[in-house]
Design a binder for these strands. Sequence first.
DNA 1: AGATTTCTGAAAAATTCTCTTCTAGAGGAA
DNA 2: TTCCTCTAGAAGAGAATTTTTCAGAAATCT
Lengths: 289, 289
Amino acid sequence: MRQDLTVAERIRGRFDRLTRAERQLANTMLANYPVSGLGSITAVAETSGVSTPTVARMAKKLGFVGFPDLQANLRAELQATISNPIAKHDRWAENAPDTHILNRFADAVMENMRQTLGQINPDVFNAVTALLSDRGRSVHVVGGRITRSLADYFFTHMQVIRSGVTLIASNSNTWPHYVLNMKAGDVLVVFDIRRYEHDMLRLAEMAGSKDVKLVLFTDQWGSPTAKHATHSFHSRIEAPSAWDSSVVILFIVESLIAAVQTATWEETRDRMRALEVLFDQTKLFRKFV
Amino acid sequence: MRQDLTVAERIRGRFDRLTRAERQLANTMLANYPVSGLGSITAVAETSGVSTPTVARMAKKLGFVGFPDLQANLRAELQATISNPIAKHDRWAENAPDTHILNRFADAVMENMRQTLGQINPDVFNAVTALLSDRGRSVHVVGGRITRSLADYFFTHMQVIRSGVTLIASNSNTWPHYVLNMKAGDVLVVFDIRRYEHDMLRLAEMAGSKDVKLVLFTDQWGSPTAKHATHSFHSRIEAPSAWDSSVVILFIVESLIAAVQTATWEETRDRMRALEVLFDQTKLFRKFV
DNA sequence: AGATTTCTGAAAAATTCTCTTCTAGAGGAA
DNA sequence: TTCCTCTAGAAGAGAATTTTTCAGAAATCT
């Protein structure tokens, strides 16, 4: 038998071939590895929300004699880990050296998160949530060369949450067309990190002259557009790379989506349900094609 | 009861009042703490050279309901020890209450990061880096309804780093056209998180039959596409929201971009310079920094 | 030394755990 | 649709663990 493999390795190695309930179990076991696997089979099953036979079956699938055998291996691993002083937990990806790009990147992202969140003003966050939750205001979203993806992500979610959301094409030639449709009180959500795009400033000015509220996602240095912004989020985007990291920006975007969704849960829920129905219909339609 | 004391502290605290057999047991338990206490009561008794009643009695003496209770405490301690201290940040956004969505979201994202990185296999990461750095292989990128943005982000960066990168439109009707252009050894990068898209599985099968390497970004539950994947990254995507969090996926994507960029720095640098020239010529972007 | 108390482990009882079997049900194929 | 295969959990049999009981051994006290 492949005695040298850890339980975690065995699980990951055949994760793809596991069934639904088994994956659910595998996840719980990996989530708080190895502690979550050290209780009784009943406890493990309950924690994972599966039945005990599922646990027993998976243990055998992984090549163990039975669940007790799997558990004995877990204990042995734990023993080996604990008695080995080199196995320290100050690394993110425990299996990679701390000079590995994964760990260096994780350090950078953590620092970005810490600094960004330490400086963020909850009042601004709440104010933006209120703006985006207001059905009287249409929402227009725009991004630049790199941030286009973030704008798209934000748009996709907002579109489900509420009506009146527009994604502005990233080609600046057509921007005046979009401005035509903006009205006073509307919200323009702009993503602009270095290298800041000059046309974005123009767009902000045009929108500003129409009394549109400008919400800006930018970096720690601040896009020139910030001058015209009603509210802006400055994220740190340092990374051990030739590019900047958008992770923290995405984090704020997702938090904001969650906040708006909560603020307007009744409507969001109804829209999500309607969307489910539409998906089902599409699926049905496909069958005949 | 002194619920906050560890098992070890309880043992040491009343070591003087323990009997001979109990001290013998206590020593064994403290020797390989806490692993030696995690087996069955029979195993613990045998290891220590005492009888099982002695073990049960000491558990009660130490203030536990019984041996299983003591063991549960051991597991809880172990869990607390293993949890990354970095995640135990009281509040991320210091100015906001810890019940604020920003702080709740930050907790969730940190936990996702910790668990995902703890499980990631650097060999897989390195193998994927090598695949993507290989100029002999074309790279095709595809995402689903939500993950389209991530695919787009990945594509935008890879396009700068190297040639031969294609973004597959998210409309699955046209996918067969793209498969036509795939050749053996090419790399197909797939983003698929729940709700998994059925057509994605078909695409993977089509690509697989042409001997295309499949790199999959998915969630902890694993897209059905994983069965066909050469390498896959399972990210935790839990969030206090009706939606899932893509932050960790973006993190891995960015790390991978950085790794590929480093692996092929000569070429990447040249391409970035050429890009600068093109930007200047088209006057599309002006520098502010 | 003898009496008393405390301790210890064997054995049995009670409980819990683990595995096997079986059926309902989901999902896919014809 | 209808059939088939695979999956997942309920139920129960069997095995283990844990606890209790109890009697002998060891330690302590008078």
